[in-house]
Design a protein around this nucleic acid. Structure first.
Length: 377
DNA sequence: ATGTGC
């Protein structure tokens, strides 16, 4: 069972929602994140919060939690509505993988896609020109597209240890940002279900969730085409989204939607990722951690790692013999593995707390972040 | 996390 920073007495503590934490006492959780968690529990109408081991401070509230509330808080979802992780199996034997060749080919992931994607948008019930220029692009920050080696799997997982896998972390790009930005002043105080502003937001939000999922699919198709492989989806799990739940609103912020099947848990570009099976814990709000969780904020990373050319060069290689395609100096530093907690520790906590079991473990092999556009080289 | 402006 998770413990509570509110001593389990929160329901008797007027005006505060209950907080259930699914991390061990030794987990790396910043004081600021727990302060944000407690503040959040006092927002009007907040009933219940599940906090996961990847919890870290965010702009409007902690990242790494699911929040059930009477009101809809758009800022809790943030601007990257529908952002999530998608894991694919590649029809590519690991023994045939040539890193140099793959690294050259994966450069094709940079920049907008030439193809006409209007039919793909329409297949998902979206307008044929809806942010079409950004569809199939990864974006910045912590987003990536990574080829992975399967190194451990439960015997009944159905995963083939000899094949390669692809993990995509991306979202709704400018679309979700526009949806959040279009809200009137006052929406951040919380919206009630019968408010037309809430209805309007929810309609756009649902489209952004569909768009983000399609974006991950198309990014994966671009990567598979570059690698001359077929692929099939294992799991797509969004972690920034809203759902109506009974009379309330379930907000997930950096918490994967996890109601069935298997859920990807991202490591870093140089540390393992995992595949988890949610166990339906009553207090987890149908959610799980989504990754390792940030340990240090972006700006402080510039003071924590050395930026000499040789140091940066070293940061493009991993202990597993893998590589990172990142030609943006700041991004290389801000997304260094040091900036993150251990996804292995996160997975272990989730297992110890009875919310998930680990199905498989993957090593990063080739992580695409960003390359300089071909025209400028 | 984004697109835009410096």
């Amino acid at each position: 069972m998770g413990n509570s920073v509110c001593d389990g007495q929160a329901s008797a503590n007027q005006g505060r929602g209950t907080i259930t934490t699914f991390y061990s006492p030794s987990a790396w959780i910043e004081d600021q994140a727990e302060q944000q968690l407690k503040q959040l529990s006092g927002w009007a109408g907040v009933r219940q919060i599940a906090a996961f081991p990847d919890l870290h401070p965010g702009k409007y509230g902690p990242v790494g939690c699911a929040v059930l509330a009477d009101r809809l808080y758009p800022q809790l979802i943030g601007n990257d509505i529908g952002c999530g992780m998608a894991l694919f199996a590649l029809d590519l034997p690991a023994r045939k993988f040539k890193l140099d060749k793959a690294e050259r080919r994966m450069r094709a992931l940079e920049g907008p896609l030439e193809a006409d994607l209007s039919e793909r948008l329409e297949e998902d019930g979206l307008a044929p020109d809806l942010f079409a220029q950004a569809l199939g692009t990864i974006g910045g920050g912590n987003h990536f597209c990574e080829v992975q080696n399967l190194v451990e799997a439960e015997p009944d997982s159905g995963l083939d240890i000899s094949r390669l896998y692809l993990l995509v972390h991306s979202g709704s790009r400018g679309f979700g940002n526009a949806v959040l930005g279009a809200l009137p002043q006052g929406a951040f105080a919380g919206l009630l279900s019968d408010d037309p502003v809430a209805q309007n937001y929810l309609r756009d939000h649902d489209q952004a969730v569909l768009w983000a999922r399609l974006n991950r699919q198309i990014i994966a198709e671009r990567a598979a085409e570059a690698l001359r492989a077929d692929l099939h989806l294992i799991s797509d799990a969004p972690h920034n989204l809203l759902e109506q739940k009974g009379t309330g609103w379930l907000h997930r912020k950096g918490a994967a939607k996890a109601v069935a099947g298997v859920i990807p848990l991202a490591g870093t570009r140089a540390t393992p990722s995992y595949l988890l099976r949610p166990l339906g814990h009553a207090d987890a709000l149908g959610s799980l951690a989504h990754g390792a969780g940030r340990r240090y904020d972006r700006s402080s990373m510039h003071g924590r790692v050395r930026g000499k050319r040789s140091d940066l060069e070293a940061m493009t290689r991993t202990q597993f013999g893998g590589r990172i395609l990142c030609e943006d100096r700041d991004l290389l530093i801000e997304e260094a593995p040091l900036a993150y907690k251990s996804a292995g520790d996160v997975a272990a906590d989730l297992q110890d707390m009875g919310v998930a079991q680990t199905e498989a473990k993957f090593h990063p092999l080739l992580t695409f972040k960003k390359v300089k556009s071909e025209g400028r080289r």
